[in-house]
Design a protein around this nucleic acid. Sequence first.
DNA 1: AATTGCTGTCACAAATCTATCATAATCGGA
DNA 2: TCCGATTATGATAGATTTGTGACAGCAATT
Lengths: 225, 225
Amino acid sequence: MYKILIADDEQKIREVLREYAEYEGHTVVEAVDGMQAVELARQEDFDIIILDIMMPRLDGFSACKEIRKFKQTPVLMLSARGEEYDKLFGFEIGADDYVVKPFSPKEVLARINAIIKRNKTSDTAQAEIVSFEGLEINFTSRDVKIDGVKANLTPKEYDLLFYLVRNKNIALSRNKLLEEVWGYDFFGDDRTIDTHIKMLRNNLGVYRKFIVTLRGMGYKFEAEG
Amino acid sequence: MYKILIADDEQKIREVLREYAEYEGHTVVEAVDGMQAVELARQEDFDIIILDIMMPRLDGFSACKEIRKFKQTPVLMLSARGEEYDKLFGFEIGADDYVVKPFSPKEVLARINAIIKRNKTSDTAQAEIVSFEGLEINFTSRDVKIDGVKANLTPKEYDLLFYLVRNKNIALSRNKLLEEVWGYDFFGDDRTIDTHIKMLRNNLGVYRKFIVTLRGMGYKFEAEG
DNA sequence: AATTGCTGTCACAAATCTATCATAATCGGA
DNA sequence: TCCGATTATGATAGATTTGTGACAGCAATT
C-alpha cells in the first residue's frame, strides 16, 4: 500500500518496523543514517519517512529539515525518552508526529496510517501498472515498456492493447473489439482489426506471444500475470 | 482538534465544509456574512477562519482586514475563479491562502491543516519546492527557475505547469486539463491547450522535454524526480 | 489615451496515424 | 495432401492530429 522509508542506525529497530510494515502490505526502504535518508528521499517518492533522531553523519532533525527543502513527505520522528523533548513537541522542524522509544511497532504503524491518511490529498495515488514477464503496461501514465524500454505505440494501438489486457484471457470477437475499441459508430471493415493487431504484435517484440489468434472468432490476450 | 470559523452566505457550502471538518474532529462555527464573522472572531479564538469573498453586508476582503486589526488568526479565502485574482494572489489583505471555487472539501481541509501547521511551527514556513534536473518549481512562491534563472511565466502557464507537475507521470486528457486548469465553466476550444503548451515549452527551454505529447489523448509531465 | 501583456482562436504546415487493398501465408477439414 | 477459408503482412493514399505563428479582444498599467 504505502512506500515507507525507515532511517535508523540500529538494525534491530529497522528490522522490527520493516516486519510489521511489510506484514501490512507496505513497501520498505531502509537507511542507516540521516545522510542516506536524505539521498533516498531525494531520489524516490515515499508516502512517509521515519527518522530516528540519534543517527551518525546526520541526525534526524537535520535530515528532516533537509528533506523539507525539496519534499513535503510526512515525517515521523523516533526519539529516546527525554531526548530533545521540546523540539519534538513543538514540531519546529516540520515533523508530523513523533514516537518515544521504547515503542510498540503496532503503535508506530497506527501512527503511520493516521499521518498518511491525514496528508493524503489525491496526490500520492498509485499508478495502475500491470506486467507480464518483461511487458509492463502502465495505464496511468499511458505507456508500455518492453524489457524496460519504452514502446512507441499509436493511439489505436494503446487503446487496443489496453482493452485486450483489461480483458485478458477472454475471447474477444472482432465485432466486440470494433464496438469497444473503435466505437459503435464505426462502420468500417472487420479486417482493420487484423492490421492493428499486426502493428501491435510488431511493437511488442517477443511478447507478441500474448496476443493469440482465435481462428473464426477474434483474438485474446492470454497470460498468467 | 481545531476550532474553525466558516463564513459564507451559501448554506450549502457551509454545510459541506462543516461536514468534512467535523468528520476530521474539528469544531465549526458558522457565519452568514462578513459582519457576523468579524464579531465572532472578536469574541472567540479560532485556529483558522474561512472567508468567502462575495458576502452580503461585508465582503471577505474587508472582513479579513478588519479581523487583522485585533487578531492574527490565519485566514483562508474562498473565491470564484477569476474573482479579484490579483488581490488574492498577492495576499495583500493578509490572507494566508485561498481556494478557488468550485473546490473539493478535501482540498480545503488539506489547506486548513497545512496553514495551521505552518503557523504553529514557529512561522518558519517551508516552501514547497520540487526540482527536475535544472528545472526548479516553487509552488509556494509561485515561481519557476531554469538552471537557476527565474522564468517569466504568465498566470495560465503557471497554472498549467503546476497542474502537470502535481500530476506528473499521469496521462492527462485535454478535457481533464480544461476542467482542472481552466475550470468547469470554460467552454472554449480544446486547442487552446496546445497553444499554452507551446508557450510553456518555449519558456522551459531544454526542459521542454518533460512535457510529453500523448497523441490522441493529451499531455503529461514525465520525470523521475 | 497609449502601451504592454495575456488569452483564446484561427489557419496552415508538418507529423503521424488509419483504413483499405492486394497478396502471401497459414490453418483445418475432407 | 489438397483446397477453400481465414489470417498475416506490406504498401499507401487519405484522414487526423499536433505544432506554430499571427492576431484580435481584453485587462491592467503608465
